[in-house]
């Protein structure tokens, strides 16, 4: 028997799926983040690297906040979940707007790499996560087990 993943637990309702996805996205952002900061840092200098890090932090914070709000609301009732999704959308957009508005005049801010990071990482992380979630939910039997890993290494 293979080990049960967080996604399989979430699929049967044993854990809040939103927090599992957000946790996984944070891990993926930790992999992609340094590469992106390095690349944009080489193009736009130190300011570009700092702006990229700020944009990445905004995207990750947005996912984590969305997951926290939805999993909290999901424990209470579906109606509350709906309210949390809609008002959460407004609240998070306002927070992102304020977060950028407050630093836009700062000396270290480069808006182009920050904007590219926000759009690119948001969509990129989602695509990556969607592929992983789809595969783990739709084809759990294809997940490599410890035995198959052992036999393939021989």
């Amino acid at each position: 028997m293979g080990e049960v993943t967080d996604f399989e637990l979430a699929a049967i309702g044993a854990t809040a799926p939103e927090s599992v996805i957000a946790k996984d996205m944070v891990k993926k952002a930790a992999i992609v983040g340094p590469i992106l900061i390095l690349v944009f840092g080489l193009i736009w200098g130190l300011d570009g690297a700092l702006s990229t890090a700020y944009g990445l932090a905004l995207v990750v914070a947005n996912f984590v906040l969305a997951a926290a709000m939805l999993s909290y609301a999901g424990r209470i009732s579906p109606g509350f979940l709906m309210g949390a999704a809609l008002f959460g959308y407004l609240i998070r957009l306002t927070l992102i707007f304020l977060a950028i508005w407050l630093v836009k005049e700062a000396s270290w801010v480069e808006l182009v790499p920050m904007g590219l990071t926000i759009i690119g990482t948001h969509l990129g992380l989602l695509m990556w996560e969607m592929k992983y979630v789809s595969l783990s939910l739709a084809y759990p039997a294809l997940k490599p087990t410890a035995a198959s890993k052992e036999s393939s290494s021989k």
Binding site: A11, I96, G115
Partner: peptide, 25 residues
Amino acid sequence: AGMVRTTMFLGIAFTEALALIGFVV
């Protein structure tokens, strides 16, 4: 419900990307 919520969360995030693109532009 678990599977629906998983898909819903990803759907919300994808839809929200449109607003983020508008904001960045």
